[in-house]
């Protein structure tokens, strides 16, 4: 079985640093793929990312986890692509690749649109499901995965026909293993491929900022401020003020 994992390296917003980490949802999806490969060593895992070349080191780290192949789609022309353009670029590569299943995250913490997987599914004419909490391993290996999906108040179970795009949520808690000691410095450069627009052949106006269908016009910080405000201490007077406020506005009988 060949599994393609679509991954993205994102700024580590929790740490507020410029470090990049593997997008948490994508890390769960890749962890699942690696777990399947441990159960069935014939499984082939390819990670695919569209990103600047600076992610190379991160990709090599993933290869040392037992990923077979990494494809880096990277070209200056692709910079600034919105999800519409990104999807078309990823789709063009996927259409010339073999796979039985595509695993992705549900959403990325920087793009945060959760649009790429469903958009890809439409172009590639595949079934797709987001917010996946679990993929039952036996059925997955048998080519008819049973998945559990978070639907707010309920958890729904489905069976999906392959090929399909399965988009995992980080609440699934699949965890990436650590790199084995003997692999820490393993040379994996032969397992990375870089694809540019020379191979993919888009016209300049089809991709990047120019080819996008949406554009960020401005960014800003939201301002709030209240006109009248009561500021009180946490003492008898203050409590009386709060009590009166609640009473006046109908929160206390």
């Amino acid at each position: 079985m060949k599994i393609v994992c679509l991954i993205k390296f994102v700024p580590d917003v929790e740490e507020d640093s410029t470090n990049r980490i593997l997008n948490p949802d994508d890390a769960c999806a890749l962890a699942y793929a690696l777990m399947i490969k441990r159960r069935n060593p014939e499984t082939i895992i390819e990670v695919v990312t569209m990103a600047p070349r600076t992610v190379m080191g991160h990709l090599e780290d993933l290869l040392r986890l037992n990923v077979d192949l990494a494809t880096l789609i990277s070209d200056k022309a692709f910079g600034g692509s919105d999800t519409w353009a990104t999807t078309r670029i990823l789709a063009r590569y996927l259409q010339q690749t073999n796979y039985d299943v595509i695993l992705t995250g549900t959403h990325s913490v920087d793009g945060d649109t959760a649009q790429v997987p469903s958009q890809l599914a439409e172009i590639c004419d595949l079934p797709q499901m987001s917010n996946i909490l679990a993929i039952e391993a036996g059925s997955f290996l048998a080519g008819k995965p049973e998945i559990e999906v978070d639907n707010d108040s309920s958890i729904q179970t489905f069976q999906v026909e392959l090929p399909a795009i399965l988009s995992v949520h980080k609440d699934s808690s699949y965890k990436l293993p650590y790199v084995a000691y003997q692999d820490l410095n393993r040379d994996v450069s032969s397992q990375v491929r870089v694809l540019t627009n020379l191979e993919l052949g888009f016209l300049p106006e089809e991709v990047g900022l120019e080819g996008s269908k949406t554009q960020v016009n401005r960014t800003f910080v939201q301002k709030w401020s209240k006109e009248e405000k009561l500021i009180v201490q946490n003492d008898e007077d203050g409590i009386e003020t709060v009590y009166g406020y609640l009473k006046k506005n109908g929160f206390l009988l």
Binding site: T87, S118, K213
Partner: peptide, 19 residues
């Protein structure tokens, strides 16, 4: 909603519009 956010991207691709 969960499913709304899966339908809209598909429709956007079909119509070739930004979402």
């Amino acid at each position: 909603t969960n499913y709304g956010r899966m339908v809209a991207p598909r429709l956007a691709m079909r119509l070739d519009v930004g979402l």
